[in-house]
């Protein structure tokens, strides 16, 4: 016969600061944006427009072309990260966790350092490195006799986005490396010793024992990459400007949103269409995250040690 449970005020009190800050900084602006996208301004008066803005964004060929171009570029940006950044991160982590590697702490730090650099510095430095006029890239290629391979990559439609994606990979490869490294370290020695007893060593130990154990971490990294890439903006803006040249080849949803929302040069900002794009981005990311949470994460097998 338990009596009435005392009201546990302390829970609310301890949660309050975080809830208040999160509500003020995230939830309210988020709903503000969603709300803004449902209005349009006619002669400077805000009017409820229902889903008209979305109809314009997806129906009007000019808006739709720009949107699909940006989404396609974003997809490619994400694909490069998934195919290059994460596998390299895993390989680096596997190498770092090898007990025979010397100076592991040095490598770990050196590879992680770009991550803490500002986008502005990274964008600027790489622009200089790749510059056909002052850059060291043409000189270095010349030194090994491959000058003919050099092209003004950031200025060519066909290479610019890939080049920037690889710059971003260079900057952020430290993050998957660190997360996987931590996951690899948490594998108990008994498991590995048991594997050795069974004659599973070297590469096959990695594939058969370690990789399944770090799969949940790889999942988390994939979803972080996905969210980060679809919210990306800074690197493109810093290196190619808001018009995301050449010829919109590097235009991603973030730069498209920026141009529309805040305006650019003579183009006046349109908060309503901007909010519409922001809502579409939110929807894309939400769908992606939900797909991961419900379709993939629930099927990942977890091991308790």
């Amino acid at each position: 016969m338990a009596g009435r449970k005392p009201v546990r005020w302390h829970i609310a009190v301890f949660l309050a600061p975080a809830v208040l800050v999160y509500t003020a900084m995230m939830i309210v602006p988020l709903f503000g944006t969603l709300n803004l996208s449902l209005y349009t301004s006619v002669d400077r008066i805000s009017q409820f427009a229902g889903l008209d803005n979305f109809r314009t964004l997806f129906g009007d060929p000019r808006w739709a072309d720009a949107f699909w171009n940006a989404l396609g570029n974003n997809g490619w940006f994400f694909l490069i990260h998934m195919l290059v950044q994460n596998p390299i991160g895993i390989v680096l982590a596997a190498l770092l966790s090898s007990p025979r590697l010397r100076m592991a702490a040095f490598y770990r730090t050196a590879i992680f350092i770009p991550t803490i650099l500002s986008f502005v510095i990274v964008g600027f430095v790489w622009k200089l490195i790749l510059s056909p006029i002052w850059g060291i890239a043409p000189g270095m290629l010349d030194f090994v006799g491959l000058k003919s391979l050099f092209a003004p990559w950031l200025g060519k439609e066909e290479y610019a986005l890939t080049a920037l994606a690889l710059v971003s990979v260079w900057q952020f490869v430290g993050i998957p490396m660190m997360l996987i490294y931590a996951a690899l370290l948490s594998i108990p020695d008994e498991v590995l010793e048991a594997a050795e007893m069974d004659g599973i060593t070297g590469m096959s130990q990695f594939w058969k024992i370690k990789l399944p154990l770090i799969l949940p971490s790889i999942g988390i990294i994939s979803i972080l990459t996905f969210v980060g890439n679809f919210n990306a903006f800074d690197l493109i803006y810093v290196s190619q400007g808001a018009l995301a040249g050449p010829d919109f080849a590097t235009d991603i949803l973030g730069t498209f949103l920026y141009r529309t929302f805040f305006g650019f040069q003579l183009q006046l900002g349109d908060p309503h269409m901007g909010a519409t794009i922001a809502t579409a981005m939110f929807g894309i990311i939400l769908v992606g995250v939900c797909f991961y949470l419900f379709a993939i994460q629930t099927r990942l097998r977890r091991y308790q040690f």
């Binding site: 622009k127 790749l130 510059s131 056909p132 006029i133 002052w134 043409p138 092209a151 003004p152 990559w153 950031l154 200025g155 060519k156 050449p246």
Partner: peptide
Amino acid sequence: LGDGFEAQTYPDSQNL
């Protein structure tokens, strides 16, 4: 225009 003008920026041109 100079070699690689496709990737030449405004400050690059000023400096050249």
